[in-house]
């Protein structure tokens, strides 16, 4: 019967649409990342920056630092200074200090975010502890550098920006390896 065949074909097409939309849901993940990169949405910063800039001695930008622990994270974690004033184009370093007060080795991951979010695309990190995970032995203290350049093209109305790190405990996800026995 032609009607049955017609229905079967239509249902098949609709099923393909269902599967495609299920896939689209997952495709939103990379699409979202690309969009964030392209438009500097959400304060997301890019990976390691390769490149050099000539510094703009005329202009000064205040960079503030924030360090937050995610829920259940017990390390002490903070920058050595709350704020620095930099010239766009100049490479600057800031040290963050982390300390593991527990009696267990732990792994942590810091996630950066820049506010205002439109400045995120102009904030380049040439070196950052957030590019890797940190493993701290019981009672260990570590100094972690971040080296950054504020882009010369930073919009003129941005006079200060904030670099915020949230430190997550990822011991369960990535158990500290080997050195566990001191």
């Amino acid at each position: 019967m032609t009607e049955d065949r017609q229905t079967r074909r239509l249902v098949l097409r609709l099923c393909v649409l269902v599967v495609a939309m299920f896939g689209f849901g997952f495709a939103l993940v990379p699409i979202y990342d690309v969009m964030c990169q392209a438009f500097g949405i959400n304060g997301k910063t890019a990976g390691a920056y390769q490149g050099d800039q000539v510094q703009d001695a005329e202009r000064q930008v205040r960079v503030q630092f924030l360090a937050t622990n995610a829920a259940d994270m017990v390390w002490t974690f903070g920058p050595q200074a709350d704020e620095v004033t930099v010239h766009p184009g100049a490479s600057t370093q800031m040290i963050f200090v982390a300390y593991n007060p527990t009696d267990k080795p732990m792994t942590a991951q810091a996630i950066p975010s820049v506010a205002p979010s439109k400045a995120a695309a102009y904030f380049h990190k040439t070196e950052c502890f957030c590019f890797t995970q940190q493993v701290l032995q019981p009672g260990e203290r570590i100094e972690m550098p971040v080296r950054f350049i504020v882009d010369r093209d930073l919009p003129a109305d941005v006079r200060h920006l904030t670099l915020a790190y949230t430190l997550f405990d990822i011991t369960a996800r990535k158990p500290p390896v080997a050195q566990a026995t001191p």
Binding site: L17, V18, V19, M21, F22, G25, L28
Partner: peptide
């Protein structure tokens, strides 16, 4: 429904 219920399914699957 055909267009968005699969996205919800994807969302809860994630």
């Amino acid at each position: 429904l055909i267009a968005v219920m699969p996205v919800l399914a994807g969302c809860v699957t994630m």
